[in-house]
């Protein structure tokens, strides 16, 4: 297969894959398939999808390092942008539907809560990265662009903490995400990266 054809295929797969959860949610919404607590259901689903896509975006660089799969690098931007899309819906449901723009409740009950602050910070980072994701911004920011976009790792860490702080003690699911994130972060550490890279090359 020609590399341009392959890249197009990979790109189409990424866009389709990233939009499937959204289509699925719309389907469930319009067929009333959302259980007794729909607000919680859709808040959780958008949040989890945003987190999965963010982690996938963070996985692209290590995948290239380990497997010399350069095509993965081109997927960082769309995956990150889709993550931002789901995070935005997540935030919109939370403020606009769950709290129904009841700002006194939001102010009293939420702004002092650490999970909410961490979630909001994650969202602001994703917003900043989305706004500066264009080629033009990349040119204008020059060397700083790369530094700025390393914030994606911080967003990943904060998103996992946000999830952990939401659940009761002993609920395991957020810890699976934490495990994946720790693995991805470890693979970015130079000695680990070099060691893992050389091992795989030897195969």
């Amino acid at each position: 297969m020609k590399s341009s054809t392959f890249n197009r295929l990979l790109s189409t797969l990424t866009h389709t894959g990233a939009l499937i959860p959204f289509a699925w949610m719309l389907w469930d919404f319009f067929t009333h398939n959302y259980g007794p607590d729909p607000i919680r259901e859709f808040t959780l689903r958008t949040g989890k999808t945003a987190l999965v896509l963010l982690l996938l975006s963070l996985a692209c660089t290590p995948i290239n390092t380990l497997f010399k799969f350069r095509a993965a690098l081109r997927l960082r931007r769309p995956l990150g942008l889709y993550s931002f899309m789901y995070a935005s819906i997540h935030f919109a449901i939370f403020i606009g539907v769950d709290y129904f723009f009841n700002f006194s409740l939001i102010q009293d009950g939420l702004l002092e809560k650490r999970y909410a602050i961490v979630g909001l910070t994650t969202g602001l980072i994703l917003l900043t990265l989305a706004v500066t994701s264009t080629k033009g911004a990349q040119r204008r920011l020059k060397k700083n662009w790369k530094k700025l976009h390393r914030l994606a790792y911080i967003a990943g860490i904060l998103a996992v903490i946000h999830y952990i702080w939401l659940v009761k003690q002993g609920v395991t699911q957020p810890w699976y995400f934490a495990g994946v994130l720790i693995l991805l972060l470890t693979l970015r550490v130079k000695p680990v990266k070099n060691w893992a890279g050389s091992r795989l090359k030897g195969v």
């Binding site: 607590d37 769950d98 409740l105 009950g109 809560k113 650490r114 939401l166």
Partner: peptide, 10 residues
């Protein structure tokens, strides 16, 4: 970790 000031009635 969270507010008890309001609730969502199922």
């Amino acid at each position: 970790r969270w507010s008890q000031g309001s609730e969502r009635r199922i």
